[in-house]
Amino acid sequence: MKKYLLSSLLLLAAAAAQAGMGFTELPGLQDDGPVSVFYPSAGEDRPMQVGSYSLKVDKDGQPVRGNTRLVVISHGSGGSPWTYTDLARRLVADGFVVAFPLHRGDNARDPSSPGPDSWKQRPAEVSRAIDTVAREPRFAPLLSLDKVGMYGMSAGGHTALTLAGGRWSPALLTRHCEAHIAEDFQTCAGLTTRLTGGMLDGLKKTVVLAVIRQRFSDAAWQSHHDARIQAVVAGVPLAADFDMASLASPPVPLALITARQDRWLVPRFHSDVVLAACNKRCELLADLPDGGHGALLSPLPPAEAMSGLAKDLLLDPPGFDRGQLPALDDKISAFLRKHLLP
């Protein structure tokens, strides 16, 4: 306890000494997209506009030594780094360097290949993002990469569970959708359509199942191990296609965040099943009773950039208080500090 308290005090001193949150983009490896990096910097934050997002960062500023640890964040389907910048700022304030890979075919620039095709390649993209930061002369001397943290939300939560030791297969997703197409429809259909209670619902379920059976019949187990990743947080993860026995005793500390009003990934088919399988080996970091699927996005994507269905699934349900998110970010950072710092 004394050692952890001392580490925390030193961390607070380092955070107080830094002036800003640096931001830079590094070219990815193996034709990956750019890796966005946020980090403790020596300069002052200045306004930066990225599309509809207004940020305050020290763009390409001089990095300063923080707590020597890297955290990789895996964005959700069709996502980008910009909806996780509040969490990134909390982590940077606590001394972390934060890296975002842009997942190929499943990001805001290119949403062409969501689903299992993306999920198969995402964990390796996380590993290559670590390699990218490790090769960058500005960051390599400031980091110890034997203990890297991982946070992922939604499809990024699926990536996080894989990197926490889970194995999954597309065939298990098909089996899940065959059993629960009505109760967990958006997991199976994504943003293609929704059930309305009308006369076309039966046809929609039939078509969605036909497509899934055709595309996702592969029963081969998918997994990925990176020994550098030593603590994982999965926020509202897609998890119905996992072999839960593989998550019963994760080799690294694993925490989950759930949102009870999530209608895209209904908790009882996803995070709740992981927590039941994991039992005492996983930590429920937070349960948001009024939170929807987009509760962990901060800032939220602009409403005008979303389809009607995406708005319905991602915008906050009535009664959800975004004022609780800074405390949630504190919990995420505290979990990672606890398991990654000396």
Score class of each variant (00 low, 15 high):
Met1Ser: 12
Ser8Phe: 11
Gly20Gln: 11
Phe23Asp: 07
Gly28Cys: 07
Pro34Val: 08
Val35Leu: 13
Ser36Thr: 10
Ser36Gly: 12
Val37Glu: 02
Ala42Gly: 10
Glu44Gln: 15
Arg46Val: 13
Arg46Glu: 15
Tyr53Asn: 11
Leu55Lys: 00
Leu55Phe: 02
Val57Ile: 09
Val57Leu: 09
Asp58Arg: 13
Lys59Ser: 15
Asp60Thr: 11
Asp60Gln: 14
Pro63Asn: 14
Val64Lys: 08
Thr68Trp: 11
His75Asn: 01
Gly79Ile: 05
Trp82Met: 09
Asp86Ser: 08
Leu91Gln: 07
Leu91Asn: 00
Gly95Ala: 12
Val98Ile: 14
Arg104Asp: 10
Ser113Arg: 13
Trp119Leu: 05
Trp119Gly: 00
Ala124Met: 06
Ser127Leu: 01
Val133Arg: 01
Arg138Phe: 03
Pro141Phe: 09
Leu143Ile: 13
Ser144Ile: 04
Leu145Arg: 02
Val148Ala: 08
Gly152Ser: 03
Gly152Thr: 03
His158Ser: 06
His158Trp: 05
Thr159Pro: 03
Gly165Phe: 06
Gly165Ile: 12
Arg167Asp: 12
Leu173Arg: 01
Phe185Asp: 02
Phe185His: 02
Arg194Ile: 10
Thr196Gly: 11
Leu203Arg: 14
Lys204Gly: 09
Lys205Val: 06
Val208Ser: 07
Leu209Gly: 00
Gln214Trp: 06
Arg215Asp: 12
Phe216Gly: 06
Ser217Met: 10
Asp218Pro: 02
Ala220Pro: 00
Trp221Ile: 12
His224Asn: 04
Gln230Met: 15
Val232Ser: 04
Asp241Pro: 04
Asp243Ser: 09
Pro250Leu: 15
Pro250Ala: 15
Pro250Met: 15
Pro250Trp: 13
Ile257Cys: 04
Thr258His: 03
Leu265Asp: 09
Leu265Tyr: 05
His270Pro: 00
Asn279Ser: 15
Asp290Glu: 07
Gly292Ile: 07
Ser298Cys: 14
Ala305Phe: 03
Met306Cys: 07
Met306Lys: 04
Ala310Cys: 01
Lys311Tyr: 08
Asp312Gln: 06
Leu314Lys: 00
Pro317Asn: 03
Lys331Ile: 03
Ala334Arg: 10
Leu340Met: 03
Pro342Cys: 13
